[in-house]
């Protein structure tokens, strides 16, 4: 076997024997990380499920106060960003630097659009007094407390999702810079691949958040 640690390169760090072993390790590591993320969001999904079952009527009413159109637009934006991300990874695999940069920038822009829309929505909530706290008021239900529960979960879930988007955007910016500097090639594009996985994960979380928060009971009868 290898007697002395070989000369270290990006594609082959000194603790590995082959580039394939390193790539395997990276992707296994990333998938495990995503599992931890599933557990992280899982805690909030559990809380949501419990409370939705306890207070279906209020949660329905509170859910109907959300702007489903903006939610739908954001869903579309994120799905497109996942598509451009895939194209960036594919370009990375082929070693086409410029194309990688173009698609990463597009992904970043779409991510920013999502965050912009989200910020607009949150701002609406502040103006409508839908933010949990002393000034909270939701029309159409006497149960202001439980309505606050819904919005607590809404802000916690969309807030932590948005935080993941911000981190993702930062990672994309770093990738763009590194690609521009010529760090990646067809032989080594693992970071693009891995951050791609992360981006898709964040996308999928939203795919669950959107129907849970905005759509269930959309057309339910007002109590």
């Amino acid at each position: 076997m290898v007697s002395e640690p070989h000369v270290e390169t990006l594609a082959l760090r000194e603790q590995f024997d082959t580039a394939a072993q390193q790539k395997d390790a990276s992707s296994l590591g990333m998938w495990i990380f995503l599992v931890t993320e599933v557990m992280f969001f899982g805690g909030m999904f559990l809380a949501y499920t419990v409370y939705r079952n306890m207070y279906p009527a209020v949660f329905g009413a509170a859910s109907r106060s959300l702007n489903a159109t903006l939610g739908a637009i954001n869903t579309a934006v994120l799905l497109c960003s996942s598509f451009t991300m895939v194209l960036a990874v594919r370009a990375g695999q082929l070693g086409r630097r410029k194309v990688v940069i173009i698609f990463l920038v597009l992904t970043l822009i779409l991510g920013m659009v999502f965050l912009g829309v989200k910020a607009f929505e949150w701002n609406e909530k502040f103006q409508e007094h839908h933010v949990p706290g002393p000034a909270f008021h939701l029309e159409g239900t006497p149960q202001q407390g439980e309505a606050q529960l819904f919005f607590s979960l809404y802000f916690a879930m969309t807030g932590l999702h948005a935080l993941h988007m911000v981190i993702g955007a930062g990672l994309l910016a770093l990738l763009i810079y590194q690609t521009y500097k010529g760090r990646f090639s067809a032989a080594y594009y693992t970071p693009i691949d891995m951050i791609g996985l992360y981006w898709h994960f964040v996308d999928i979380v939203w795919i669950y958040l959107f129907p849970l928060l905005y759509l269930i009971d959309r057309h339910g009868v007002k109590p």
């Binding site: 899982g42 805690g43 409370y51 149960q143 802000f155």
Partner: peptide, 29 residues
């Protein structure tokens, strides 16, 4: 560990941001 992490975040959010996920006064459990 991630489940502890999110639980702690929710406790901190309840203290800092007046969210109320575990607040019995608002129907929380």
């Amino acid at each position: 560990t991630p489940v502890l992490a999110v639980t702690i975040v929710l406790v901190a959010a309840e203290r800092l941001l007046h969210l109320g996920i575990f607040d019995p006064a608002r129907g929380g459990d």
